[in-house]
Amino acid sequence: MVTSKIISNNLNLWYGEKHALKNISMEIPEKKITALIGPSGCGKSTFIRCLNRMNDLVANARVEGEVLYDNTNIYGGDVDVVELRKKIGMVFQKPNPFPMSIYDNVAYGPRIHGMSNVDKVVETSLKDAALWEEVSERLDQPALGLSGGQQQRLCIARTMAMKPDVILFDEPCSALDPISTGKIESLMESLKNDYTQVIVTHNMQQAARVSYCTAYFLLGELIEVGETKRIFENPKMKSTEDYITGRFG
């Protein structure tokens, strides 16, 4: 039985006058990977940023509707946004390590939140992110000296150090080569029994490979959502079919 970790109900978002998300209602299954696909500007990144209120940082963004995380509306008045982003972490398109050592990058969050046994947290997080073997001998080296793929896994380790429930990936492999992409995908696979994951990707083969559920967005609307196998084998909507078969536009 699949339960929902996050439920979006009639979610709307405006950037000033621009209506960027239109009545999005969908459920994100718990401990599964959900892929969001669609052409540029369709709203998939905007939607994923709504799931941990990253759009709060955009000055003219306005949200209506609700996003239930474990049955609590994250847009409710009494939600601690810092705590929310600790539980729902995010990995971005370009790896963005802090200009500090590998160790300090991972230890940064746990230290700020006063977590104990930071050494252990750093080691576990780097191991879980499949990076430990490559960096354990040089933890004091600058993180910016790592390759792009390693930097991205470091960012995942940094997210995991906060012991999140949900990890949001916003095109995490678009700047990586196929080998590094493969490592990130293997990592997602190894994490799927413990974490709820959502990935925005332009790579449809990646969505088909890694995800359990796929949602197709177009012009700010959710066109279709369902099990990945069905979406890629027999989509219900013509628009979805046109997009995934390359007939769109």
């Binding site: 083969q205 088909a208 890629f232 084998e233 027999n234 989509p235 079919e241 995934i244 078969t245």
Partner: peptide, 9 residues
């Protein structure tokens, strides 16, 4: 080409 949907079928 990694065909999808009706193309794959």
């Amino acid at each position: 080409q990694q065909p999808m949907a009706k193309d794959l079928r």
